[in-house]
């Protein structure tokens, strides 16, 4: 939160943390997040429900999202969905009885050179044949891909370790003028008409600590427990068949 000029900007990342903790967004978590960010639970829910990646009911440990947009469709994505439904014994947008897999059709995942492609908990695989799919499901079930594919909800396993205090915007020009200023320094800036960034005497480590802990008392959210799990940059080198490693073949 300390990274952002306004706490509400942290809403989507904090919702991801809640989903990382519980696998989906519980009502409790959304109420807590509202308290933490000084917005109503309805505003939290209203925002969360807009975005495809947030689930408000439990999903499987592995969320399989098959892209069916044009490039994948013309390369057999719907046939892959049919096959996946047979392999898993469920229809798209449902979860297996053992809670292992949720299958969904998804819009373009931006791996169109490896069509048809899919993601498992947002880790990319492609191109995927029917045989590849069955092997993938076996591997996931047996836990053989645990270091590549974290549990559903875990988006970023690298935590930020650095940062400067956020630049506070003109309070009078903010999009939501009814909102009371909640950051130190906001009011000062409003009075002076020229909000200088507050002088920061903390060390980077202290600033980061504030970024990962609730800024105010009395609103300890359950979502922040997961922030304790800090991995170094080496934690990033776990990409599956990532599209990014492919260089442009042009001149």
């Amino acid at each position: 939160m300390a990274l952002y000029p306004r706490p509400r900007s942290a809403l989507i990342p904090v919702l991801h943390l809640a989903q990382e903790q519980d696998g989906y967004l519980t009502e409790d978590a959304m109420v807590h997040i509202g308290e933490l960010l000084d917005i109503t639970a309805a505003e939290v829910y209203g925002t969360a429900s807009f975005y495809d990646m947030f689930f408000r009911e439990p999903v499987g440990r592995h969320l399989i999202s098959i892209c069916t947009n044009v490039a994948c469709m013309i390369n057999g994505a719907y046939e892959l969905v049919d096959h996946a439904e047979k392999t898993l014994g469920i229809k798209a947008d449902t979860t297996t009885a053992d809670g292992e897999f949720t299958l969904e059709e998804f819009e373009c995942l931006a791996l169109c050179d490896k069509a048809p492609c899919l993601t498992v908990n947002w880790r990319f695989f492609g191109p995927v044949t029917n045989q590849d799919f069955d092997r993938l499901v076996d591997d996931l079930r047996a836990g053989r891909l645990a270091d590549v594919v974290p549990p559903h909800g875990t988006l970023c396993r690298v935590r930020r370790t650095v940062g400067l205090p956020a630049q506070v915007p003109f309070p009078g020009r903010e999009g939501d003028p009814m909102k009371k200023p909640v950051r130190d320094g906001d009011g000062v800036g409003a009075a002076a008409g020229a909000p200088a960034p507050p002088v920061d005497k903390r060390t980077p480590g202290e600033r980061v600590a504030e970024g990962q802990q609730p800024a105010r008392e009395g609103a300890v959210p359950q979502v922040d427990e997961s922030a304790a799990q800090i991995l170094g940059p080496e934690g990033t080198d776990t990409g599956p068949t990532a599209g990014g490693s492919r260089a442009g073949g042009g001149t």
Binding site: I12, H16, Y51, M53, L109, A110, T119, N121, W122, R123, F124, L155, C156, R157, V158, R159, R160, T161, V162, G163, P204, P233, G235, T236, T238, G239, A242, G244
Partner: peptide, 21 residues
């Protein structure tokens, strides 16, 4: 960053940490 780019988010976050250092 688009939320679906999990690996991209991780690499970019790690790169920002490195860039500060």
């Amino acid at each position: 960053v688009r939320g679906e780019f999990a690996l991209g988010v991780e690499r970019l976050t790690a790169a920002v940490n490195e860039a500060y250092d």
